[in-house]
Amino acid sequence: MKKYLILLITLVFIFSCKDKSTTKTIKTPTTSNIKYATGFDIVTEGNVKKLVIKKPYKNAKKQFTYTLTNKTDFSKLQLKVPITNVVVTSTTHIPMLELIGAEKYISGFPQTKFISSKKTRNLVDNGTIVELGTEQQINTEKLLALSPELVIGFALNGNNKTYNTISKNNIPVLYNGDWLEETPLGRAEWIKFFGVLFGKEKQADSIFNVIEKNYNEVKKWALKAPKKPTIISGSLFKDVWYMPAGDSFIASYFKDANTHYLWQDSRGTGSLSLSIESVVDKGLKADYWIGCGLLETKKGVQEKFPNYVAFSAFKEDRVFTYAIRKGATGGLIYFEKSPTRPDLMLKDIIKITHPELLPNYELTFFDKLK
């Protein structure tokens, strides 16, 4: 009897092991079409689409995954799409919304004077887009009266009191971290973020594909240049020269334009804080100075920063500024549009440094300091 009992237990064990070993967990395939951006993702799991915000703000220790559905429940990270009433907070959002035809859904914006685009300025002027104060102190009463389905914000950290107040009133706040991207195409790819929110995903994908193709083609053109001119950038602010670091998206433009950026070997994705002496020591003989802060004229430079006249680029009229091209109310076109159109930005730099490669192209963002 004992033998039969042992045999029975053995058989049960064998078959239970067999069942466990042959049972397979079927995983739902996950797809994504994000190629360059590191701060967000759009994933599809079966019939479920999710928007993942990987870098909502600088040094964020957590990410947020929102299920895109037909009903908003932010406590469960569920978001209804498409959005038809939105408040956005950065001018960099405007060109992307315009490209997918979604600017008409903007109901409010802080500091509307900085909006340069004529199309969206018309919506401000006719009262469709309401002025909401400043980015630091958004008028929450006005905002709540608009009853937006979503507020798309940006922040330096996760302790924004204004956004917390908005969230407590059952209006979702979604962080947009496009400004944290370290490559030009990574920033531009955030158009897909807007595409999925406004039911314009295919359109956003198509637009980005064209921008990507244009950028890579122009990048190849730059390789035909016979030499690499030397470049400096940035300017003084309170006795500190802020120079784009070697891993920054600005440095990426200089590299892709086939130039020799004199600080290309420095580390960091933001700005370097340098003394005027160190910049003079390294960059005095640079061929070009591209991006000289908010300076507009040589006369203004001489009056405010007499040390600048010593640079070869200044003497030879090779200083280029983005501060001249403005919208009707003073907003800089460079800050608003260049993140969305890195292809045009790269063309500008190539036109400046290798003019023979683009003889018929006219600058979009820069002008020579006069």
Rank of each mutant, 00 (worst) to 15 (best):
S266L: 08
N122T: 07
T128P: 12
L262I: 13
T297N: 12
E303W: 03
S252N: 15
F237Y: 12
V124T: 11
T25N: 13
I34R: 04
K227S: 15
K228I: 00
P359T: 11
F198T: 04
T84P: 00
I290D: 04
K351V: 09
R341C: 00
T28Q: 01
F193Y: 00
L344P: 04
W241G: 01
A60E: 04
L344E: 11
N170R: 13
L274A: 08
G127F: 09
K202A: 12
D317V: 06
L369N: 07
E103I: 02
D178R: 02
V196K: 01
G283W: 11
I129Q: 13
V151H: 05
A286S: 15
F254G: 08
Q302Y: 11
T23K: 15
P148T: 07
L150Q: 03
G270Q: 07
G330F: 01
T183Q: 04
A310R: 08
E212Y: 06
Y105N: 10
S117C: 00
M243T: 14
T353W: 02
Y4V: 13
H354G: 03
L51T: 00
V173I: 08
D317I: 04
I324S: 14
A251S: 15
F365Y: 15
K118T: 10
A245F: 09
G153C: 00
D348V: 05
S278Y: 00
K228S: 01
E217L: 14
W190I: 08
K298P: 10
L79C: 01
L123V: 03
R318K: 15
S107E: 05
V151D: 09
M345F: 09
A328G: 12
Q136F: 07
P339C: 02
T38A: 10
G246W: 10
L223P: 01
L295C: 12
T22V: 14
S75E: 14
I171M: 11
D125M: 01
Y288G: 09
K227A: 15
G153S: 06
N159G: 07
A102W: 04
K200M: 04
T112A: 13
T112F: 07
T329P: 03
N159V: 09
E45L: 12
D367F: 10
K71Y: 02
A225Y: 02
S90C: 04
S16R: 01
K351Q: 11
K347E: 13
G158V: 07
Y57A: 05
G39Q: 05
P226A: 11
V48Y: 06
V87H: 10
K24W: 10
K76Y: 02
I53E: 05
C292D: 14
T269L: 03
L123T: 05
T72Y: 07
H354I: 10
Q111W: 10
K3G: 03
E303A: 09
V240H: 05
L77R: 13
L332M: 05
T31F: 14
M243K: 04
H93A: 00
K76Q: 06
W263F: 11
L294Y: 12
F64M: 01
T89K: 05
S75Q: 14
P306D: 01
K104R: 10
N170T: 11
